Computed example of a mutant assay.
Amino acid sequence: MSKHERWSALLELLAAGGRLEVEEAATTLEVSAATIRRDLDELAEQQMLVRTRGGAIAHGVSYELPLRYKSSRHASEKQRIAAAVADLVADGEVVGLNGGTTTTEVARALALRTGSGLRDAATAPSSASVPAPVGPVLTVVTNALNIAGELAVRPQIKIVVTGGVARPQTYELVGPLTMGVLNEVVLDVVVLGVDGVDPDLGVMAHHEDEAGVSRLFAERAHRVIVVTDSSKMGKRAFARICGLDRIDVVVTDSAISAEATGRLTDAGIKVIAV
């Protein structure tokens, strides 16, 4: 097991229990206690946990895994979801993306698709001796710094980044500056990553500031696509984004239950399970 894998596993254990003992972690991960102590020391230096005598505790009351350590969870499901979403986006559209691991995969899938999508301009028959210049295929508006960083180097994508205050756990920009930019744009489609999907309350996020940004994304978009693995179906989080009546499509994995699919369908939502 590599250091990255150990760190991910340790943070998962800490997220589940809020407290972690060295000996317990060593037994679970089948490594030496000395290795666990070094790992916890390094994680504490990066402010991912608080070191205690004999172990570690989570930061604050509710622990949230940093995005880069959540990215390996349900990885194959998220990649399939992202590929399906890319097929729902047409060239020339303005796409909104909030932050999160699933929307990050969507951004990558869009970049790959638009990269190959340049074939249409490159191979289309033309009577002109000089080919027309190829401009951006998509416009992406995002409040996620990591998504902006990945897409900024893609000439086929025009990237618009909201202002705001960065949250280090998720790399999302939030606050009045973010809202100000979103109030000035119109989106064809928004792809929202969420922390919970409840049949009565709608879609939710752990933090009220992120929920507010996602809510405005949905208000500014003609179509709203929610992307989430099936583990979040039926789950509630602290802050409500919007009701199911605002959602057009949910893209999830094939492990979604028939009951959950039925309730979403009854609410007028198209469910795509991959």
Rank of each mutant, 00 (worst) to 15 (best):
P125M: 15
E219T: 04
E172M: 05
S129N: 01
G96P: 12
Y63M: 08
T228C: 14
R215L: 00
G115Q: 07
L10E: 00
A15K: 13
V165I: 07
Q156V: 10
Q46D: 14
A83I: 07
A44M: 08
E259R: 14
R108N: 10
T35K: 07
G60L: 03
T178P: 10
G212A: 15
V50Y: 05
G55F: 01
G196C: 09
I81Q: 05
S127Q: 08
P176Q: 05
M179Y: 15
K232W: 03
I247C: 01
V186S: 15
I147R: 12
T178W: 05
A122G: 06
E208K: 10
T114G: 11
K158F: 01
D248A: 08
V95K: 13
A58I: 00
R51L: 11
G234W: 00
E77C: 14
E105S: 10
R236C: 06
R38S: 02
A25Q: 02
G193F: 11
R51M: 09
S230H: 04
V194K: 13
V249D: 07
H222Q: 14
L67C: 04
A26K: 12
A82V: 08
V194N: 11
V224N: 02
D188R: 07
G193T: 10
E30L: 10
R68A: 10
G115V: 05
A82H: 03
L65R: 14
L187E: 01
T265L: 05
D198V: 00
L88V: 05
S71I: 15
R80G: 11
V137M: 07
V197M: 14
A109N: 03
K232L: 12
G180A: 15
